[in-house]
Amino acid sequence: DRHTIHIGDITIHLEGFSEEELKLAEELIKRGIHLEEVKRILEELYR
């Protein structure tokens, strides 16, 4: 499954994450956390 996060003019595609995980990812990215770090956090929390 493919999910999309929109932040301003930026569109990020993250596959294989639930709606809850994507909301967390979006919040972290909006707070300035680097995408690679966001992915690592999600994997630690949900895998």
Rank of each mutant, 00 (worst) to 15 (best):
Glu37His: 04
Ile29Val: 09
Leu28Phe: 06
Glu27Pro: 01
Asp1Gly: 03
Phe17His: 04
Arg2Asp: 12
Ile33Phe: 11
Leu35Lys: 04
Glu20Gly: 05
Glu20Ile: 06
Glu20Asn: 06
Gly8Arg: 01
Ile29Gly: 01
Glu26Phe: 13
Glu44Trp: 09
Glu20Leu: 08
Ile7Gly: 05
Lys39Cys: 12
Asp9Ile: 10
Glu21Ala: 15
Val38Asn: 00
His13Ala: 07
Ile41Leu: 10
Leu14Cys: 13
Glu27Thr: 11
Val38Glu: 00
Glu43Ala: 04
Gly32Arg: 00
Ala25Glu: 01
Ile10Pro: 03
Asp9Pro: 07
Glu21Ser: 06
Arg2His: 12
Leu42Trp: 01
Arg40Pro: 00
Ser18Asn: 13
Ile7Gln: 06
Ser18Val: 05
Ile12Phe: 08
His34Val: 10
Leu45Gly: 02
Val38His: 00
His3Ile: 11
His34Ile: 05
Arg40Phe: 02
His34Tyr: 05
Glu37Thr: 08
Ile5Leu: 03
Ile33Ser: 04
Leu42Ala: 00
Glu44Lys: 02
Thr4Tyr: 05
Asp9Ser: 12
Lys30Leu: 13
Glu36Ala: 08
Thr4Glu: 14
Leu35Thr: 05
Val38Gly: 00
His13Thr: 12
Ile12Thr: 04
Arg31Asn: 14
Asp9Trp: 13
Leu42Cys: 01
Ala25Cys: 03
Thr4Val: 10
Ser18Met: 06
Gly32Leu: 07
His6Tyr: 05
Val38Ile: 12
Glu20Lys: 08
Ser18Tyr: 05
Asp1Val: 01
Gly32Thr: 04
Ile41Glu: 03
His6Asp: 12
Lys23Pro: 02
Glu43Met: 05
His6Asn: 12
Glu20Phe: 06
Glu36Val: 06
Leu22Cys: 06
Arg31His: 06
Ile41Asn: 01
Ala25Trp: 10
Leu28Trp: 07
Ile33Asp: 04
Glu43Asp: 13
Ile12Leu: 12
Glu19Arg: 05
Ile12Gln: 06
Leu35Gln: 04
Arg47Glu: 15
Arg40His: 10
His3Asn: 13
Ile5Pro: 04
Leu22Val: 10
Gly32Asp: 03
Ala25Asn: 00
Glu21Trp: 15
Leu45Pro: 00
Ile10Gln: 13
Gly32Ser: 03
Ile29Cys: 12
Val38Thr: 00
Leu35Met: 11
Lys39Asn: 05
Glu44Asp: 12
Ile5Glu: 06
His13Lys: 11
Lys23Ser: 08
Glu21Asn: 06
Glu19Ser: 12
Leu14Ala: 04
His13Met: 13
Leu28Gly: 00
Thr11Asp: 07
Lys30Cys: 06
Phe17Trp: 11
Gly8Ser: 08
Tyr46Gly: 03
Glu15Gly: 10
Lys30Ile: 10
Leu24Met: 15
Glu21Arg: 02
Leu22Trp: 10
Ile7His: 09
Ile5Asn: 03
Phe17Asp: 03
Leu35Pro: 14
Glu20Val: 06
Asp9Arg: 01
Leu35Asp: 03
Leu22Ser: 05
Thr11Ser: 14
Lys23Thr: 09
Ile12Cys: 02
Glu43Trp: 15
Glu37Gly: 03
Lys23Asn: 06
Leu45Asn: 02
Glu26Gln: 10
Lys39Asp: 02
Ile41Met: 11
Phe17Tyr: 14
Thr4Ile: 07
Arg40Cys: 01
Thr4Phe: 07
Leu45Ala: 08
Tyr46Asp: 07
Lys30Tyr: 14
Tyr46Thr: 02
Ile41Ala: 05
Ile12Glu: 03
His13Ser: 12
Phe17Ile: 06
Ile12Arg: 02
Glu27Ser: 10
Leu14Met: 10
Ala25Pro: 00
Glu21Val: 13
Gly8Ile: 09
Val38Cys: 01
Lys39Trp: 15
Leu22Lys: 11
Gly16Asp: 04
Ala25Met: 11
Tyr46Glu: 08
Ser18Gly: 11
Leu22Asn: 04
Lys23Asp: 05
Ser18Arg: 07
Glu15Leu: 11
Glu26Tyr: 15
Leu24Val: 15
Ile7Asn: 07
Ile33Thr: 09
Ile41Cys: 04
